[in-house]
Design a protein around this nucleic acid. Structure first.
Lengths: 155, 155
DNA sequence: TGACAATAAGTGTTACAACACCTATCATTC
DNA sequence: GAATGATAGGTGTTGTAACACTTATTGTCA
């Protein structure tokens, strides 16, 4: 039997193991999804990474978060938080303020414009989500979530 | 019940749907794996993308492949194949030759040095694979592979 | 309290990703 | 067989990722 992924990548040889196929499946699927999300966000002038930051800051509310806390909550690690926040500030989607209590910290907060952007963007993201994952059964989704969690936990 | 991913990303609110959680799970897991693979490859001076190209060209053998064919086989799409191949050629891991039959095509082939690099790199990649996926049951791996294939096929 | 470690942010630099546009070569058709 | 369109590469430019290094501020403890 020939796997779907094998045909997709036009591989001539079968995968040496299920683990190898699962590894590539995860990377390939994420690449497809990330690309679609980027396309959906492009009309709004932001990247998936920036969208992720805005959602994190919306979740934090009025208290905001410092750069390190934002980094901890990101889906994919960002090795240059200051400049990433700087760009979002330039776009007026967040504000940055030095924390008077601990002047090492810079607290970032989402602005009204940022919240508004998220409101407009959300349906587009949900459309991608519905198209790609909407037809999967509850059972399949649970299996995916648990399997992927096991991969992330493994050490 | 609080999901693992929710705790991982320090989210205060639960996911609105299983589909939303699965989507983020895929992206998050791929980011973790990609980061580990990049770390494993760093001592050898290549990126996961470059490693992917070398494996593709090794699979193609002496016939080699043209740029478009390489792009079709990549796990993640690369929007700048010429310069990517140019870099690998500069590192002496591949050769490029204009096809005499159709002078539009440039055939890329892996070199002995490229094959040698793959041989040295493979154990490191397999170590990541074994660590992250080695403990999963056959059943879990199959579920993952099938679930992810369903996501990629959905339209 | 004064030195030193730890933490958070910022900066400088390099390489790569992404996009749009341009060039060369070949197939097709009238 | 000249014009047209399609296909494969290449180039120019901009922005961002990645990494190492520096600065500023705070905590700790001899």
């Amino acid at each position: 039997m020939t796997s779907l992924l094998q045909a997709e990548l036009k591989q001539t040889r079968p995968f040496p193991s299920a683990a190898a196929e699962a590894l590539l499946s995860i990377l390939r699927t994420a690449a497809v999804l990330d690309h679609e999300l980027a396309d959906a966000l492009k009309p709004f002038g932001i990247t998936p990474t920036q969208h992720n930051v805005l959602r994190i800051l919306r979740g934090a509310g009025e208290d905001g978060l410092c750069g390190r806390e934002v980094a901890e909550r990101m889906v994919a690690s960002v090795p240059d938080v200051p400049r990433m926040l700087e760009r979002l500030e330039a776009m007026k989607f967040i504000t940055r303020e030095r924390d008077p209590g601990d002047r090492r910290h810079v607290t970032a907060r989402i602005t009204a414009a940022g919240r508004q952007l998220l409101t407009r963007v959300t349906p587009e993201i949900e459309a991608v989500q519905a198209r790609r994952l909407g037809q999967l059964s509850k059972r399949t989704l649970t299996n995916l979530i648990e399997g992927l969690a096991a991969v992330r936990e493994a050490r």
